[in-house]
Structure formats: structure tokens, C-alpha cells
Design a protein around this nucleic acid. Structure first.
Length: 321
RNA sequence: GGUCGAGUAGCUCAGUCGGCAGAGCAUGCGCCUGAAAAGCGCAGGGUCACCGGAUCGACGCCGGUCUCGACCA
């Protein structure tokens, strides 16, 4: 091992030690699982405890109802991090989140406090919890590769440059192949050299608590939540956002926003927009379940009625061992 | 009441000359390190409305019944 590598290793373990001492617990689960209310209840009950959102969409200012962002009152009562970081017209990506979360953790540590991380964006959480070493970006290369629709040809090229990376993805996944090639060609290093992949789960790290519902109950909760969002003014929120500028590529993927946009543009009825949002949210929740259940480190609680009642005692115990 | 059309997977629909029942979506499962609320793959699922007939063989042809739709009265 080179001296630089030893230094990097030492830095990594120091960062990890700070992370695990500051982030008491990460609360995970699907959308509409009730994880936020459980974390908020814990923050009220434990002194010097703050919350850190692990959510790809709550980072956008003005996107409040559709992202189920904590209310102003909740944010006034308990300090929340990683919310309202950028405008809805801005791009925001994994690396931005990782940097912002690290800064938040350092800030919380400086003030001698702790946070609970709460959220459902699995990759964002892992980028922090497992200290993923994210390769850089080479936008001009990516644009060029993206223009090439010959997916089989791109996959062949990746297989030649980085067989390990190629073996980790489907030969038809254009976006992942383009990204891997962008990194190989841009950095001059194999994409796979940046990490062992997502299939390894280091045992040491942040304690993770997961909320899990029976599928039928989750489906009901999602349908109910989407209707509640519309009742709370989601249509107005989308209309006002669009007046202040188009949603960025990343912000525009927030569930409910394109669907309501279609309604505002007269392409569908409000009921159709609601149905589409409900369906897409349900499919997203299932993808979240599939992501989180791979992680053997998560301690699961099967919720049946009241998330706070059923999960708070366990969360308190994990916070104060 | 009459004429015509339709009835095939949870839904919308293909199905050539009579020869092993198909697609998209949905559902289930899996994959994915800078779009992740994104992207990709695999799988399960059928009394071809029902009853009878001709045929080696029927989703398909013949006869009848039921349901839905349109038109006529």
C-alpha cells in the first residue's frame, strides 16, 4: 500500500467514526411508511437530537406538498437538515447530496449534537453510510455517448474496457452503460475500480431501522396520501412552480409533478393525474422495498397500525444503548 | 321484436390457410456508484362467453344459447 493510500484509508476510518457517533440511527422505509413521524417523535423526546433528510426530492425549494416535506411548524420545532438546498430549476445529484450530508454531519458534530437520518432514497443513504467513492463527471463525453443508440455496441465497448463493470449491469441498460463508459474514458480508470459494487454491505456502520408494512396496507396508505396531497393544494403548487421556471431534469422526476403538469396542460383529467400518480408512487414504493430488503444490516419492524407507537420504543433504545 | 358487430391473461387488444395461445400495460421477483421519486432485466398468469355438431385435429367452420354495443322497428 502506498503512503497516499494509507492516508486515504486513515481519513476514511476517521470519517466513519465521526459519522457513526453523530448519526445515531438511520430510519428507512418506503414512501408513506410513517418513518418521518417516528423520527420526529424521537427528536422531540431526546435532547440535542436533530433530523437529516435522506430524500432526493425534498432538497428542492418550493416542492413541499408533493414531496411530503416536513411542515414549517415541524421544522421550527426540530432542526432539519438537507431540505430546501436548491431551486426547482437546478440539477441536484448523488454527489451533491453526499457532500451536503457530510457538511451537515460535521456541523452537527461541531455543535455537540446528534442526528437521525430519515428517508427513502436508498442510494443517497449508502453514499454516506458506506462512504462510496464517487467517480467524477465528464459531461461532454456523456453527451456524446448518450447520442449513440447502439446499446449493444456500447456494451461491447464497456466489456472490453472494464469487464467487471460490464458484468455488474444488464447489457440493455443504456443509462448505466453510458455512465460506466463516461467514467472509464474520462478518468482513464475502470469504472469498477471506484468500488466493489453495491452488493457488499460492510458490517460496521450506522445502525439502520426499517419500517415495513403489508403490501395491501401500503397500497391503501399511498392512495390516501396522494388524495390528501391534492386536497392540500398540490395542483396550485405545481402551477406556481412552473410559473417561476421549468423543473430541472432531476426535480421534474418527482412523483406527482409531471402527472399534475399533464393535467394543467389539458392532456388528462384530474382523476387521471391522481390515478397515474398513485400508480407510479406504488411502483416506486415497491422498488424501495426491493432496494432496502437486500441490506442485511437493517433491523426491520413490521408495522400494523401506528408507526410511532410501534417503532418509537425500539428507536429510543437504539439511540441510547 | 329484427339486423349487424363484439365477447381471448387483472385491463386494452392482436391472432394469417383449421395444426403447441400472443403483445402492451398491470402484478410478482431481481439488477443498477454522479438522473435513484431515475434506469434495466426475468417470471407467473388462459374453461379463447356457454352448449352441441362436422373434422385425425377448432380460438377459428356449422347450429343454438347468453351478455354487451350500435342501428332499425
Amino acid at each position: 500500500m502506498t503512503m497516499a493510500a494509507v492516508d486515504a484509508d486513515r481519513q476514511r476510518s476517521a470519517a466513519r467514526a465521526q459519522l457513526t457517533s453523530v448519526v445515531g440511527v438511520a430510519v428507512v422505509g418506503t414512501t408513506a411508511s410513517g418513518k418521518s413521524s417516528v423520527a420526529l417523535a424521537a427528536a422531540h423526546a431526546v435532547p440535542a437530537l436533530e433530523l437529516a433528510s435522506v430524500d432526493a426530492m425534498q432538497v428542492y425549494r418550493g416542492m413541499n406538498i408533493g414531496t411530503a416535506k416536513p411542515s414549517a411548524a415541524e421544522q421550527a420545532a426540530v432542526r432539519h437538515h438537507l431540505i430546501d438546498l436548491v431551486a426547482h430549476t437546478d440539477l441536484f445529484t448523488l454527489a451533491d447530496y453526499q457532500a451536503a450530508m457530510r457538511a451537515a454531519v460535521a456541523d452537527v458534530a461541531d455543535r455537540g449534537r446528534r442526528v437521525i437520518a430519515v428517508g427513502g432514497t436508498g442510494l443517497y443513504l449508502r453514499s454516506v453510510v458506506d462512504g462510496l467513492d464517487l467517480p467524477g463527471q465528464w459531461p461532454e463525453l456523456r453527451d456524446e455517448l448518450e447520442g449513440n443508440r447502439d446499446v449493444a455496441g456500447l456494451f461491447a465497448q464497456l466489456s472490453a474496457l472494464d469487464p467487471v463493470a460490464a458484468s455488474r449491469m444488464e447489457p440493455t441498460n443504456h443509462r448505466r452503460i453510458v455512465r460506466a463508459l463516461e467514467v472509464c474514458l474520462g478518468s482513464g480508470r475502470p469504472f469498477s475500480s471506484f468500488g466493489p459494487g453495491l452488493d457488499l454491505y460492510p458490517a460496521e456502520g450506522v445502525t439502520q431501522l426499517g419500517l415495513r408494512w403489508p403490501r395491501e396496507r401500503l397500497v391503501e396508505r399511498i392512495a390516501h396520501r396522494v388524495r390528501a396531497m391534492v386536497d392540500a393544494g398540490l395542483v396550485d403548487e405545481v402551477a406556481q412552480l412552473r410559473q417561476r421556471g421549468p423543473l430541472s431534469t432531476t426535480a421534474g422526476q418527482a412523483l406527482g409533478y409531471p402527472e399534475v403538469g399533464d393535467y394543467l396542460d389539458g392532456r388528462c383529467s384530474l382523476d387521471e393525474a391522481i390515478d397515474a400518480t398513485t400508480l407510479h408512487t406504488r411502483q416506486f414504493a415497491v422498488r424501495q422495498e426491493r432496494w432496502f430488503r437486500r441490506d442485511p444490516r437493517i433491523q426491520w419492524i413490521d408495522v400494523e397500525h401506528d408507526p410511532v407507537e410501534e417503532c418509537l420504543p425500539t428507536l429510543m433504545r437504539l439511540l441510547n444503548p
